[in-house]
Design a protein around this nucleic acid. Sequence first.
RNA 1: CGGGGCGUAGCUCAGCCUGGUUAGAGCGCCUGGUUUGGGACCAGGAAGUCGGAGGUUCGAAUCCUCUCGCCCCGACCA
Length: 589
Amino acid sequence: MRWTKTFIPTVKEIPGDAEVISHQLMIRAALIRKVASGAYTYLPLGFRSLRKAAQIVREEMDRAGALEIVMPILQPMELWQQTGRDEVFKEILLTATDHHGRVNVFSPTAEEVVTSLAAEIRSFRQLPVNFYQIHDKFRDEFRPQYGVIRSREFLMKDAYSFDATVEGLNESYKKMYDAYCRIFDRAGLKYVIVQADSGGMGGTDTEEFMVPSEIGDTLVATEDGTYWANIEKAQVDPLVLSDAAKAARAAAPAMAEVHTPNVGTIDAVCKFLGTQPADMIKTLVYAAHSPEDPKRKLVVAALVRGDHDVNESKLVGATGGGVILELADEATIRTVTGAAVGFAGPMTLAGKVGKLVVDHAVAAMGVGVTGANKTDHHVRNVVPGRDFPLAGANVVVADIRNATEADTWGGKKLKFSHGLEIGHVFKLGTKYSEKLGARFDDEKGQSQPCIMGCYGVGVNRILACAIEVGHDDKGIIWPISIAPYEVLIVPVGADRSENVRNVSEKLYADLLAAGVDVLIDDREARPGVKFNDADLIGVPIRVTIGDKALANGNIELKLRREPAPQLVPVANAASAVQETVARLFAELK
RNA sequence: CGGGGCGUAGCUCAGCCUGGUUAGAGCGCCUGGUUUGGGACCAGGAAGUCGGAGGUUCGAAUCCUCUCGCCCCGACCA
């Protein structure tokens, strides 16, 4: 391709609304333009990279034996109601009502549709099977952010495996897991695989492929790196009752109410009473309901230490699973606690809520301060087990909080970092197949539900992550596999030198003929402009052709990631470029 | 959904507080010239419903109301 025949509107200035480097560079390097919040146009350069990333994914899915299909983006709401996921995804579900008054959802994922397809499976002989598509997805994110990293419309590879047995599922899962490793290796991305929370998907085991980064989700790892988990999932060793805490309990006088007018928050209470957040017991009241069983509703009280955060997915687990938790509204809190929001305490709650869930760390406290269930009042000298129960029919002690840097897992200290999710693999089980009738007859003629897995890759994020971790102050440094072009020819002074023109055009033609993905900067621009644009768009191999080196019969071959060029005789130019292309690809295997 | 900020030329932004003729700059674009190995220079030029609607006023980019869009922070912490 010739620069003057395509559309590469690079920009010098940093776009005002782009916060992170990948977003800034994607706009500056003419890969994308924003159309609306969380919606982007891919320009020729960006689309070339996106297609290359998608193609890598496709090749590895095919190699793993998955079957490519395309499912509709518009899906009937009824299908979503059948699985209860209209509720689970409620807030991010983008919908459109058609002329007949039917409600359609813009697919945020496709378990329902693919499972209704799999309902055609009749026999164990047809299993296993794995369907995938590379298609747009829509999620009405609360807050689109970081350019294409969190957009409302995005390109996702979604695969769905169907197996007859759990062992089969494990194999299908492993195949996808291995395919993902190859995909991200080929895309030149360094990644870690972390234990994750299954969130709205449901299911049991799930792992995320994360690219370490300054931004993104919080990741937790043991210091020896043997355990990695998303903060949503990260486990902690339960704190145990220390001797000091035991002694404090033994010495504790009876509970004492204190007047704390308008002092509702932890910080305010600590300041008012001169205590520490770690000595506070936070009582959070949740309303839980089940998307599968509308009659299943209960109020859940969760106790965590004042310096800890409740982890809602852990709390869902401790509650028995299968429920959606929302913080209770003010009326419910008043009913349960008899006080305004901000003054709840556990003392009398066990009898008033459906479930009282106590975090390990609270159960290990000596003496605490908490709300008095009386507006504008707190109580001191609260002893767990004495003043509120740690066991009982509707009381459980469990891990329901986020890990902190003070915690350990398996006795090892935890370190925190961040990462961007580029892939996610789930073992789903039979949740969807049972509801949507994806059943088969086994060897004995018994009808069984298919055992499912699902597997996602954010294709746009592959690009954004590659840039996030591959750039310098001049621009993008692409891995060759997903660079918009593999080679950029930069003729210098072509208007003055016939020799430059001839050598450049010859090399361009030779490379095209050899199947190299080459772009030639045929603009009548000064060299500085071309070099700066070349660095900005980040094509991995640059060939500079100018009278300077041609005087000695050479062209200059420079890698984007290296500072200095290498001189190559004109006669060897095409082969040297091809070898370099091959070498860069070989590095990604 | 709550809080804050922004919306003026293709892009980045100034002007607004304290209303006053033809609304500015840099970059980009067009023309001519000089330049030519890391975002050149000179001269000339085109280009703006000042996000939209309503209001106040003799007069509104500027003040007021509503509205739309975009960005950031928060998202309930008892």
